[in-house]
Every structure is written in C-alpha cells, then in structure tokens.
C-alpha cells in the first residue's frame, strides 16, 4: 500500500501523534513511489511490517503471537476432513449408485452457505441452548492449572470450531475423491483385477486408492487454501484468538498496517502450502 500525501493528511487528523510519526517513518510518503517501494521491500526483508494503529505494537509481533492458534485449527480440521473425506469418497465411488450422488448434492448445498452463518447457528445451539461447549475463546482466561487441565480446556474450546471447519472442508475433499476414484474404477487394469477375482479390499486399496491418491493430493493444496478463509470467519464467531479475530479488529478499526500484514501473511501461507504440496507430489508420483 502506497500512501499519498493527501491520505496522510486525513490520518494526521485522526491518529495520535506518536503513531502517526511511526507510520510516516515506515512508509515515507514524501518520497517518490519507486523509493517508497524500495523502502517497503527492505522493511519486509527484515520482517518489519510496520506498527499497528490499534495495538500500538509492531505488526509482525502481533501476528506471531496469534498465528499458532490459526495453524492449530487449520491443521487439525484439514487432517480430520481428509481422514474422513477420502475413505467416504472412495467407498461411495466403489459402491456407485445413488448414495454418493445424493450425498454429493447435500454437500453442495452445505458448501454454498456462508461459513459464519453455520458457525452462528452452531454456537446458538451448542453453547447457548444446550451449554455443551464454551461459547468462545481458545482457553479459559485466568485458569491457573497444570498442563493436563490446560490441554483438556484447549481441546474443549476447539471442538466446535473444528466441527464446523470439518463440515466446510469435507464436501470438496469428498467430491474430489469421489470423482477421481469413480474415474479410476473404470480403468482397464481395475477391470482386469476384477476378472482375476482379487479380493475387494485389495482392489479398493491397491488398485483404486493407490492410483487415485496422486491426483487427489495434487488438488488438495487448493482445499488447504480455501480452508483458510473459512477458518478466519469461524474464529471471529467464536472469538478464537487467531488471525481471523485480528482481521476483524483490523477491519473495524481501519488499522491499515495490520490489515496489510494479514494480507501478506495469508499470501505467504498460500505460497508455503503450494511448495509443501509440490514436494509431496514429487515424492508420491514423479509423473506430475
């Protein structure tokens, strides 16, 4: 984001002087754009993302303090959805017929709903009506307990967000697996295996799954990237202290440096995920 002198004038009237000065120092708006870019890139290389208006702290520090919770939610939920979705898709494709198609259209409808609406409804039901799960946060504040109680507490707080995320992430993984496996199932070598009277289990795992997995994996990185936006909204509803809640604060207080930092970090996450998946795919199947 490059700041022009007129924008600066507006900020000058609303920000306290100290924050304004650090902002001015960071973006150096009086210099030409090319030089601004050079300064900005120099700052980025040093992991200096500027200073937040709202928290009055370096953006990099704030994000570093929050990103752990977001990564926790994202990895737990995606692992669960993959562990559920891939076998479900495989079985539905193996059986064929109407069941899989029916499930697919149910999932399609579920997938089109806004994530935060799903989260609100779940929160309403399970936190405020039945009081099964705590309604927000990642742990009970001010709890002075040993490590076991603390981890139980953290798990309890994350159950509902994870369930919602699984509901959102499962459908694309299921439909991806279903489509890929349904295609693999028709391949001549699977037909051949059936003529040889190989056991169903063997065909399922050794023939269908093993040959579908590279294609599924090569498209799973997109699921990871889609998942991040779902996580952000679920966090906001449950006031989970991750990047999403930070995004909410930044958006409602118009904290530009923080917003920009979050934008950069999500982009960075995307690039890293892509790199990891490229490595995995190379390992699993050198063809791709």
């Amino acid at each position: 984001m490059f700041v022009s002198a007129s924008d600066l004038h507006v900020l000058n009237t609303v920000l306290p002087e100290e924050t304004f000065n650090s902002f001015k120092e960071y973006y150096a708006p009086e210099k030409p754009v090319a030089e601004q870019l050079a300064i900005y890139i120099k700052n980025l290389v040093r992991f200096d993302l500027g200073s937040s208006f709202y928290y009055k702290m370096p953006v990099a520090e704030i994000i570093a303090g929050r990103i752990g919770w977001t990564l926790l939610l994202s990895f737990v939920s995606i692992s669960i959805s993959a562990l559920l979705g891939i076998p479900m898709g495989l079985n539905a494709a193996r059986r064929g017929g109407r069941g899989g198609k029916y499930l697919l259209s149910c999932f399609m409808a579920l997938q089109s709903l806004p994530v935060f609406v799903l989260a609100i409804v779940f929160q309403l039901l399970f936190c405020f009506k039945f009081h099964i799960f705590p309604s927000g946060g990642a742990y009970t504040l001010g709890m002075n307990a040993n490590i076991i109680d603390l981890s139980v507490d953290v798990v309890k707080h994350s159950v509902l967000p994870v369930i919602i995320l699984v509901l959102v992430e499962l459908p694309p993984i299921f439909s991806l697996t279903y489509n890929v496996c349904a295609r693999t199932k028709e391949e001549p070598y699977v037909e051949m295996a059936r003529y040889f009277n190989l056991s169903d289990r063997l065909i399922k795992f050794k023939y269908v799954l093993k040959n579908s997995l590279p294609e599924i994996l090569s498209k799973m990185n997109i699921q990871f990237l889609y998942a991040i936006s779902g996580i952000l909204f679920v966090e906001v509803v449950f006031s989970y202290p991750g990047i999403g809640t930070l995004l909410k604060v930044a958006a409602s207080s118009r904290d530009y440096p923080l917003l920009q930092g979050i934008l950069l970090i999500t982009g960075f996450y995307g690039v890293v995920i892509n790199l990891i998946f490229e490595l995995i795919i190379k390992k699993v199947n050198p063809r791709f």
Binding site: L225, S229, L232, A251, L263, T266
Partner: peptide, 14 residues
C-alpha cells in the same frame, strides 16, 4: 487461489 478472494476483498472494502 493463493490469497483467498474474501481477504483481498475485505482489504479493499476497508
């Protein structure tokens, strides 16, 4: 795909 649309959208809407 790498940066979710909604995050970019939020940024510019702000």
């Amino acid at each position: 795909i790498i940066v979710p649309e909604i995050v970019v959208l939020l940024f510019f809407a702000v």
